[in-house]
Amino acid sequence: MKKSIQKIGKRTIVFIRTAGHMFIFLMKSLCYIFIPPFKFKLFLKQIKFIGNKSLLVIALIGTFTGMVLALQIFYTLRKFGSEAMLGPAVALSLIRELGPVLSALTVTGRAGSAITAEIGIMRITEQIDALIAMALNPYRYLIVPNIAAAFVVFPLLTAIFDVIGILGGYIVGVKLLGLSSGTYFSQMKQYVDIVDIEIGLYKSICFGLIVSWISCYKGFYTSFGAEGVSKSTTEAVVLSSVFILISDYLIGSFYL
């Protein structure tokens, strides 16, 4: 009994210490975003890496998400004789929920893991130490460009996901299931408010921060060896995904 309590206590202390460490890391990184000198080239490089290179997979997942969504919603709406609501239902689901979440989870798997692995390898091969030894701040070179790029890229990728998803829904609803094109889009205009777009935007910014923060942190403080990098990469993806879903619920419930 005593041992179990000790174990729980130990884990709680480790959890609080790690949480505090991660929070300080985030605060430091956010401060450096606003303090010059800015590494604009590295920022653009990360925009290309996180954003441009994720476009194809985002387009692919967006298309099929929209198509599946239209198929399932159409099936349900037909039971109530409300097929005309397909457009707004697809659009609202994508804009408020699926667009930000699925694009964030996709980028976590594609770019987040790569960021952790790259920074982690830099750590174990002493490249980060080399920066510090040159009296240079590694946050400016490795962390700030990633976080700043994520702020820009995540909302854009989410917007692209939403548009492509709605078009995917259009293909299924209009071209395959026979709904009229006018019904699909006109109902959408009526039911999708600016506040729905705002929610999607806030979520995507929040998810961008989560993914870049956790990926950079896990890489920066990786343990040694190939196993350490692999463990950090897995942890970064799992933790980012969990945080995305938790914050998705919190933001969603706040705006309900």
Binding site: T125, Q127, A130, M134, A135
Partner: peptide, 20 residues
């Protein structure tokens, strides 16, 4: 500390060259 570090050059064990 950074001012003092400016005086240093370090050759790390594995070179620590930037891969990218």
């Amino acid at each position: 500390l950074d001012l003092t570090r400016q005086k240093f050059g370090v050759v790390f064990q594995g070179g620590a060259l930037f891969d990218s």
